[in-house]
């Protein structure tokens, strides 16, 4: 049996557009478990329901139907909403919308302070969290003087300081330049290696290649679910819901058309180079 941190049972989420009679089903009957310590990437085009799903994972949205358990707590149980939020932290797309203080370390302390933690422990947590995201030297700086990638790291530190078991990243690199993207992806990998469960929502296929598991959402339902190799190995199916495939998968398709056999499990650049070097 899977030791899961998140358990979703028959989740339905509906919202009503103004004036319209019929509610829209953003999530249509999803059941899903996320294993403790795993790294799951969720992909899907805009409107596929992936961000709505993410917001249901820490009680920012509550189910219309079905149940979501985080670390054993039902997200709809008001008494435990703070336990839910402390178990599953969330990092959003735009760092500018997540920073609240004029000084970096105050910003990181905001979450733990709200948990009523004693000052000495807050100090320890803030220092550790800033170290985790390689922003220690910036603790006395003002966030608005930082680059996008640095701001996003501060936002992540603010979540890390809450000591969550799981962090949900909702397109954390969408507004960053390539350097910022690399910084954030390496932080996410490190957090995962330290044992934090990672759920990463992204439009970048090369980020999903790093995950243990890839879930593709389409029209509020789970369209594909498997290891990156299992999912991206079916390139045509991925493309049928208007998503891209990693470049190596695209090259594999083009090579097959030219009579060069390439196994479906080859989805990364390095694997492709190795494979072609061994090709006979």
């Amino acid at each position: 049996m899977m030791d899961s941190i998140i358990k979703i049972e028959n989740l339905i989420f509906e919202y009503r557009k103004e004036e319209e009679e019929q509610p829209v089903k953003a999530i249509n009957n999803i059941s899903l478990e996320v294993e403790k310590g795993s790294f799951t990437a969720i992909l899907g085009k805009n409107g596929s329901g992936k961000s709505t799903l993410a917001k249901n994972l820490n009680g920012l949205l509550l189910p219309t139907g079905g149940t979501v358990y985080v670390n054993g707590y039902n997200t709809a149980d008001e008494e435990h909403i703070w336990d839910v939020r402390q178990s599953a932290g969330m990092v959003f797309q735009n760092p500018d919308n997540q920073l609240v203080s004029a000084i970096v370390e105050d910003d990181v302390a905001f979450g733990p302070e709200n948990l009523g933690i004693e000052p000495a422990e807050i100090r320890r947590r803030v220092d550790k969290a800033l170290e985790d995201v390689n922003m220690g030297p910036f603790k006395g700086k003002s966030p608005h003087l930082l680059s996008g990638g640095q701001k996003q790291r501060i936002a992540i530190a603010g979540v890390v300081a809450m000591k969550p078991r799981c962090i949900i990243f909702d397109e954390p690199t969408a507004m960053l330049d390539p350097k910022g993207r690399k910084e954030i992806m390496s932080i996410i990998k490190e957090l995962h290696e330290e044992g934090i469960t990672v759920v990463l929502i992204t439009h970048f296929m090369d980020e999903a290649v790093n995950a243990d598991r890839v879930i593709i959402m389409h029209q509020g339902e789970i369209f594909m679910d498997g290891t990156p190799a299992e999912v991206f190995g079916q390139g045509e199916k991925v493309k049928s819901v208007n998503l891209d495939v990693p470049m190596a998968v695209e090259l594999a398709r083009a090579l097959r058309q030219r009579g060069i056999e390439v196994p479906e499990k080859i989805i990364g650049t390095e694997e492709m180079v190795e494979y072609l070097c061994q090709y006979k």
Binding site: M247, A248, E250, L251, A254, L255, Q257, R258, G259, I260, T269, E270, M272, V273, L276, C277
Partner: peptide
């Protein structure tokens, strides 16, 4: 990717910029 292949001894054109061109050369 194509530059990495060249470093490993593949005799293919330098600075390939599209997947289709890469597949032609590699094949």
């Amino acid at each position: 990717l194509t530059e990495a292949l060249r470093e490993r001894g593949f005799k293919i054109r330098e600075t390939i910029l599209s997947v289709e061109d890469a597949a032609d050369e590699i094949a």
